[in-house]
């Protein structure tokens, strides 16, 4: 059982900078949780506190039901994969993978067997006697993975492990890591600023912004029901269209004209922000909303139409079958796909 629980965990660096505001959440046994957010939002700080590499200023962190605030990193039964892999440059791959076991007084024969097993799993068998400097980036990445899996820890921690790989390898490793975690069933916390990694790998995503949690949810919840304009614009490529709109007479209107959907009775009239995923806007010559296309972006499998709706930038995602030229057209927006946010706070309504 390795549940991870953060109870009002806060981080203030010695220079007085508060990197993580008091934060609480719980990660279930075997769950794959991705921490995502822009650069500097405190993802690494949070992960490093779980690893024990950074002191916890306030609050309680428990792993497997025990408070571990004051437990040494080596005694937390965790394994971490670093962005730059952090392999020991002077040790062979075999020693790199076995080092953690050796220090835990595992008999040499058993270490060798486990290293062999991990190497086989990660296709590293033929590189066991090489030094890290003689490996490619992808192979180093595997060694870092091997070092983590060989110890059979309670918890895997990943800090942007794929960001130094090229796009193709990244896609491949993404799938391999996820499959490995599924197979081993080890609780995992994975930090990334890449929203594609977050969407594809996570059981649950935690979106961080400026040291606080914006939203926790499954990839689908985060994508379809973003809790704020921040989440809406951070997750998804291209991001959700966010445009100014108004509530008047129980209706959402753009430019005080086109009525888009009814709102529940009792909602105040006023300015709001309307969110539309690019793929939820449908081209329709008899649609209610005028759309002026200025650029057609060709992406092979689909096309992106960039232009203006009601005087505001707007992007529409269409499949490759739709052949369209820049110019005036019309859109239909399905009310069930629209998100409404408070114009000031950005929170969902």
């Amino acid at each position: 059982m390795a549940q991870v629980k953060l109870d009002a965990v806060r981080k203030v660096y010695p220079n007085g900078y508060q990197a993580v505001v008091p934060t609480s959440f719980q990660i279930e046994d075997g769950e794959f949780v991705v921490l995502v957010g822009p650069s500097g939002c405190g993802k690494s700080t949070l992960l490093r506190m779980i690893a024990g590499l950074e002191d916890i200023t306030e609050g309680t962190l428990s792993i497997g039901g025990h408070a571990v605030n004051d437990v040494d990193p080596a005694d937390r039964d965790i394994a971490m994969v670093f962005q730059n892999y952090a392999l020991y440059p002077h040790m062979t791959v075999r020693k790199n993978i076995g080092y953690g076991l050796k220090n835990r007084k595992v008999p040499a024969a058993e270490i060798e067997a486990k290293v062999q097993e991990a190497a086989k799993m990660l296709n590293l068998t033929e590189y066991l006697d090489r030094k890290p400097s003689q490996l490619s980036g992808g192979q180093r990445q595997r060694v870092a993975m091997g070092r983590a899996v060989v110890r059979d820890p309670k918890l895997f921690l990943f800090d942007e492990p794929l960001s130094n790989l090229d796009a193709k390898l990244r896609n491949q490793m993404r799938i391999e890591i996820k499959a490995l975690q599924r197979r081993l069933g080890v609780t995992s916390v994975y930090v990334t600023h890449d929203q594609v990694e977050a969407m594809t790998m996570a059981d649950r995503i935690i979106v961080l912004n400026e040291g606080k949690i914006e939203q926790i949810g499954t990839p689908s919840e985060i994508y379809h029901n973003p809790a704020s304009t921040f989440v809406a614009s951070f997750m998804g490529a291209p991001p959700m269209n966010l445009i100014r709109a108004q509530i008047e007479d129980g209706q959402v209107k753009i430019n005080g004209g086109t009525e888009l959907m009814a709102v529940p009775a009792g909602w105040d009239s006023g300015e709001i922000t309307l969110g539309v995923r690019p793929e939820d806007a449908v081209l329709d010559h008899s649609g209610a909303v005028p759309f002026e296309i200025s650029i057609v972006e060709e992406l092979g499998a689909h096309r992106l139409l960039h232009g203006e709706m009601a005087g505001q930038p707007f992007t529409v995602h269409v499949s490759k079958e739709v052949d369209i030229q820049p110019g005036q057209t019309r859109l239909t927006l399905n009310p069930s796909t629209l998100s409404l946010f408070d114009a000031e706070s950005g929170k969902t309504l």
Binding site: P73, A74, N103, R147
Partner: peptide, 18 residues
């Protein structure tokens, strides 16, 4: 010496002298 290498060692080995 990269900080992360020392940190990886902190996770692998409890003894500072080691």
């Amino acid at each position: 010496i990269p900080r992360s290498v020392r940190e990886a060692a902190m996770i692998d080995n409890r003894s500072a002298a080691g």
